[in-house]
């Protein structure tokens, strides 16, 4: 039983990882700082480890899919991220692929259900 739940945990982790970039890009259409993004994702049912998310934001910024700027006016300085035009193009492509995959998987699940 333990092995089974461990395998499921690992597979679910892989699934989550695969969709994390898409989830992030969908939630940075307005300037968003790290903590608020975590909150926003959690509210939508996506649990994400903070230690994974923040380096991911930096990686996406390096790939120029996100742009960022520091806001130093509040109680503490915060780095705000927003999707770039390149990021939007990439996101649109990812959405198309996601929808295709979803359709294919749904079809397979339905066929599997009939057996």
């Amino acid at each position: 039983m333990n092995d089974k739940s461990k395998i499921i945990d690992n597979l679910l982790l892989e699934l989550k990882r695969g969709t994390l970039v898409l989830s992030v890009l969908l939630n940075v259409d307005n300037p968003t700082y790290g903590y608020s993004l975590v909150q926003s994702l959690q509210e939508k049912g996506i649990e994400v480890e903070q230690n994974t998310l923040y380096p991911l934001l930096r990686r996406l910024e390096k790939q120029e899919l996100l742009s960022s700027n520091w806001d130093t006016e509040g109680s503490r300085p915060r780095k705000y991220y927003i999707i770039s035009s390149l990021g939007t193009e990439v996101l649109n492509e990812l959405i198309i692929q996601w929808q295709k995959n979803q359709f294919v998987i749904d079809t397979m699940i339905q066929k599997g259900g009939q057996h």
């Binding site: 790290g34 903590y35 503490r76 780095k79």
Partner: peptide, 10 residues
């Protein structure tokens, strides 16, 4: 700076 801000927010 970012980690500090994130930790304090949390």
């Amino acid at each position: 700076s970012e980690i500090r801000s994130l930790i304090l927010d949390n």
